[in-house]
Design a protein around this nucleic acid. Structure first.
Lengths: 323, 323
DNA sequence: TGCTACAATGATGACGTTTTCATTTTGGGG
DNA sequence: CCCCAAAATGAAAACGTCATCATTGTAGCA
């Protein structure tokens, strides 16, 4: 009977006595509401999909945790999916979201220039919040600030006396990669230094690439005296390369990492990093999405969140004989 | 009409011509099947839930990836959930699984002695595969071997000349904690060494605990010459403690880690670890679950998978003055 | 007491799929 | 050329919930 539904929905159009009776019965019968049936009737699943490039990345986990907390308080369940940086898997995820009729999506693309992904994304029916990507899609976006922090930390290295500073970061196909290169160039330009293009790497966002690129650079006859790693994986790779070459940090080479507080804490010495508050990113994205799922209309909203440079022991003056 | 369903289900009771017509129409109308409706009719969601204690743990991610691959090939979607080692969240997950009518579950409990979790688990209707836990629940289980590998690595340290070997591992409320302590004790016993209970820690499975416990032990007037970390987080903590005290590895203290290949690769020096093939664990669990979901009956199956000791540079003879 | 107004509850249909059953069409053999 | 078997297709019911509408019960007021 419809009354059961009224009890479940906690409406107040049911007498206390009846409510009690129904609740009693639900317990003894082990009644569990059938979400599929509810979904068919209401067209809402109370599921929000979160698409991430990579789950091994602690940065994204902080974000996911924060988003889950906020969405959970509104009765939503978070569905976590990792694309492994594969556009094919990104499209598969969107397919999944359509079929299961998810109520909303938070999406971090692995390549914002990929046409088919962007097209599939723009065809979605549910509200979407994008993470840190420039696309023509009409959707809310949470941007992280990269250029300015990169400019600051590069300037800091220059001030310490570094002249050959390497930057290894994500491809230019995603905004963070582009922005970081921009900030880096700006700092060098401001200092009146020429830019050695061979000291900039932005081919892949993997630990392997960070490793091999850093290795190649640091083995040159005239190696860089500092290496800036943009992004978690590359950071790992750069650290491995430094160790492989038995380079002391910061004695032989200064290193700047990104995001990964856990790793940068455990490595000797503690690493200077560019950090951002991923919980804030998660909270912001979830909040924007909840509003949209509640039917709030209006133009797409763009939020910009700051990054922070945390100076620690991995950056110091270069050895005079290396400069 | 029912024919559409026949086309979607790829049954061969439909003429090629009609099939083509229907597929054409589906494309032009942008038809996406409604899983909720299908679920209501068939009582299957094609969703498998994976409950993990922690997503930051790379060990579990390898497992999840492997399971997802195998389940995906059978048309299942993996729903990932982290309990954050909270029994409350574990029960919430089971609630979720019931409401959404998931087809099967793979579950790693944070405390197998928790009555309400075990009870909730035993009330579930769908097939369940447990990961490495001893419970009275009638379900398939994938066990990892811990005791024997721990015994081997402890014996190795004894052979190198260590006499005060610390073990910091997971609580005895989960099988890996118990088994590791067993193996450790067995090795000491076999060598005829007495066991210093103050060198065994098994209170929490957190980085913080590993850090503070290792710090306390290593600061003693007569500190251990080797520390074995059982589990990922504790491993992190032990490394941080060693760094904080400026202890050289393995000069001042030998260290044995667990599971985390990524971390043990990047830290100087490379760390001796107890390792296991988590992809195999994931594959095995997924395979067992798929069989059950296909209706295969029979007694619960228990599978035991091996662990491996990988000797690297973090274990060496203790300094003579320390022994 | 009798009427109205409102609260509480019962009955019913619709959501989109699958499946079963009935009907129509097709093709082959007598 | 006709009939029957088999293949193809159409029609209809059911899954569990929620929302709408109709009905019953109750209390308040004249």
């Amino acid at each position: 009977m419809g009354t059961v539904s009224r009890v479940a929905a906690k409406l107040n159009t049911v007498s206390p006595e009846t409510r009690h009776r129904v609740e009693q019965a639900m317990r003894t019968l082990g009644y569990v509401p059938n979400i599929a049936a509810r979904t068919m009737r209401t067209n809402r699943t109370k599921i929000v999909g979160l698409l991430l490039p990579d789950l091994a990345n602690t940065v994204f986990l902080l974000l996911a945790k924060a988003a889950e907390r906020l969405l959970g308080s509104e009765g939503y369940t978070l569905f976590l999916y990792s694309s492994e940086r594969s556009p094919t898997r990104e499209i598969e995820f969107l397919e999944l979201a359509s079929r299961y009729r998810m109520d909303g999506l938070i999406v971090s693309l692995s390549d914002e220039t990929n046409q088919s992904v962007v097209e599939a994304l723009s065809k979605m029916e549910c509200p979407i919040v994008l993470l840190d990507r420039d696309t023509p899609i009409r959707a809310d976006v949470v941007f992280s600030e990269h250029a300015e922090a990169m400019q600051r930390v590069t300037a800091h290295l220059i001030e310490l006396g570094h002249r050959r500073i390497a930057l290894i970061t994500a491809p230019l196909g995603i905004r963070p990669g582009r922005e970081r290169v921009l900030g880096y160039r700006a700092a060098l330009r401001d200092a009146g230094l020429s830019i050695d293009e061979t000291l900039i790497g932005h081919d892949y966002q993997t630990s392997k690439y960070g490793f091999s690129k850093a290795l190649e650079m640091l083995r040159r006859p005239v190696p860089p005296t500092a290496v800036i790693a943009g992004g978690d994986e590359i950071f790992y790779g750069v650290l491995r390369a430094a160790r492989q070459l038995n380079l002391a940090i910061p004695g032989d080479v200064s290193i700047v990492g990104a995001d990964n507080r856990m790793l940068s804490d455990v490595v000797t010495p503690m690493i200077t990093i560019i950090d951002r508050d991923m919980e804030q990113v998660g909270d912001t994205a979830a909040d924007m999405l909840i509003r949209r799922m509640n039917g709030q209309g209006g133009e797409p909203v763009h939020v910009h969140l700051p990054s922070e440079v945390i100076l620690r022991n991995s950056t110091a003056k270069p050895r005079p004989d290396l400069v």
